[in-house]
Amino acid sequence: MISNAKIARINELAAKAKAGVITEEEKAEQQKLRQEYLK
């Protein structure tokens, strides 16, 4: 099960992506976390 901290990070990265200020490194982290969440 995914931790609350990881869910919070997913939401934080989603907000950054929506604002258009996300880095390529953060995009990769976001994809990794989303895949983990979906498992």
Rank of each mutant, 00 (worst) to 15 (best):
A19V: 07
R34H: 15
I10E: 04
T23W: 00
A19H: 07
I2H: 09
Q35K: 12
L38D: 15
R34M: 15
E26P: 00
A17Y: 04
A5G: 09
L38Y: 09
Q31K: 12
G20Q: 05
A15Q: 11
L38V: 09
A8L: 06
R9V: 02
E26L: 01
L33T: 03
Q35T: 10
K18R: 13
K18F: 05
E12Y: 03
E24N: 11
N4T: 13
G20C: 07
A28L: 14
Q35L: 10
E36G: 03
A14N: 12
E25H: 06
A15H: 07
T23L: 03
A14V: 09
A14W: 07
A28C: 08
A5Q: 11
A28D: 12
Q30F: 15
E24Q: 09
E26T: 00
I7Q: 08
Q30L: 15
E29D: 03
A19M: 10
A15W: 05
A15Y: 04
I10P: 01
K18A: 15
E12A: 05
E25W: 07
E24M: 08
A14S: 07
K18D: 11
A28H: 10
Q31H: 10
Y37R: 07
M1T: 12
A19C: 08
E12N: 04
E36N: 04
E12M: 05
E12Q: 08
E29S: 01
E24P: 11
A8V: 07
R9D: 02
I22P: 02
A5N: 10
T23R: 03
K32W: 09
L38A: 12
A17P: 01
K18L: 13
K27G: 04
A8S: 09
E26K: 00
N4V: 13
E29W: 01
Q31T: 12
E12L: 06
L13V: 01
K16I: 04
Y37S: 10
Q31G: 07
L38G: 09
A8N: 09
E12W: 01
E25D: 11
K27Q: 10
S3C: 11
E25G: 06
A15T: 08
E24G: 05
K6G: 06
K16E: 01
K6N: 08
Q30N: 06
T23P: 00
A8E: 13
L33K: 03
G20H: 05
S3M: 06
N11Q: 14
Y37W: 14
E12I: 06
Q30W: 15
E29L: 04
L38R: 05
V21H: 10
E36C: 08
K39Q: 13
A14D: 13
A17G: 05
A19G: 06
T23G: 03
E36A: 04
R34E: 15
K16S: 03
I10V: 06
I22L: 13
I2S: 08
Q35E: 15
E12S: 04
K6H: 09
I10Y: 11
N4H: 14
K32M: 11
N4M: 14
E36P: 01
A17H: 06
E25V: 08
R9G: 01
E26D: 03
V21D: 10
A8F: 02
E24D: 10
K27S: 08
L33H: 03
V21E: 12
A5M: 05
E29A: 02
K32V: 08
Q31P: 01
